[in-house]
């Protein structure tokens, strides 16, 4: 009886020590789930989800504070991936899904106020005070954050046109013909 208790106690102590050691030795810095979620998010940093950037949104999803269907740039595809990762239900997107677009500055109208430069989260706008500004197109994520601050409304969002470099083979679809 005593020996059985002692063995159990000893076992508890040994295993406890092992677990305690492991929790220190193999400690994971940061939250790996946040990183996994962030890898799915499109990194537009647009804030349309209500969080100031993709990382805060990822953290909020991970903490269970935010839903997975708040990211319009990620689209339904993103929602599906998040649902897959987190084992949650796929939900329809909160906002309407838009085609990928980029901001274009009408350089004739631009007065060089630098407000859009300050708004751009990815430094994709070049220009200086009282100088014309322009968008570096390959860097623009289409977040629309520069559109509102512009005092002369010279920034417009334009969908990215299909060209030879981004053209994709289509999903094979066949017309069904009525048999004569």
């Amino acid at each position: 009886m005593i020996s059985a208790l002692a063995i159990m106690a000893l076992g508890a102590v040994v295993l406890g020590a092992a677990l305690g050691y492991a929790s220190i030795r193999f400690r994971v810095e940061g939250d790996p789930l946040v990183e996994k979620i962030e890898a799915i998010l499109p990194q537009t940093q647009c804030g349309q989800c209500g969080y100031p950037g993709c990382k805060p949104y990822a953290a909020a999803i991970s903490a269970g504070e935010a839903d997975i269907n708040l990211c319009p740039p990620g689209g339904m595809d993103g929602v599906r991936k998040l649902a897959d990762l987190l084992g949650r239900e796929v939900k329809p997107l909160e906002a309407e899904e838009k085609p990928k677009q980029i901001a274009i500055i009408d350089e004739q109208t631009c007065i060089g106020c630098t407000l859009c430069i300050q708004a751009c989260p990815v430094d994709a706008i070049v220009g200086a005070a009282k100088q014309m500004h322009t968008i570096i197109e390959p860097l623009c994520t289409g977040c629309e954050l520069c559109v509102k601050p512009c005092p002369v409304e010279c920034i417009s969002m334009q969908p990215i046109a299909e060209n030879i470099d981004n053209w994709k083979w289509k999903y094979p679809v066949f017309e069904i013909k009525r048999a004569a």
Binding site: P42, Q43, Q45, V122, L139, T141
Partner: peptide, 12 residues
């Protein structure tokens, strides 16, 4: 593109 955007955002 997303990775590049993230890097630029973090740098900013």
């Amino acid at each position: 593109a997303a990775d590049a955007a993230k890097e630029r955002f973090e740098l900013r």
